[in-house]
Amino acid sequence: MKLRKNVAVSEAGLLFNPVTGESYSVNPIGVEIINLLREEKSPEDISKFILGKFATDKATFEKDYHDFIGILEHHNLLDSHEETKA
């Protein structure tokens, strides 16, 4: 899973996709995940980090994480080349 190049998210949770011209708002936990994705962390590492910081369980987070990745994909924010390789 890799973010598209140039996709940046601000501290306040603003995300701009220069390829499509769309802007998005992201909640704080979403910002954390996007920044971890930017660092090319694995889903396992991301899960570990979030579970360490937020009060939730593994099953809940993994379900929500996949949902979130699905939406990033839906909005064309993931690097599709990377995905086909993986």
């Binding site: 909640n27 936990i29 009060a55 909005h75």
Partner: peptide, 15 residues
């Protein structure tokens, strides 16, 4: 240290 309240991640297009 107590953990932060969890909220699922969301991303929303700015309409």
């Amino acid at each position: 240290m107590s953990k932060t309240r969890y909220e699922r991640p969301v991303i929303k297009k700015l309409e």
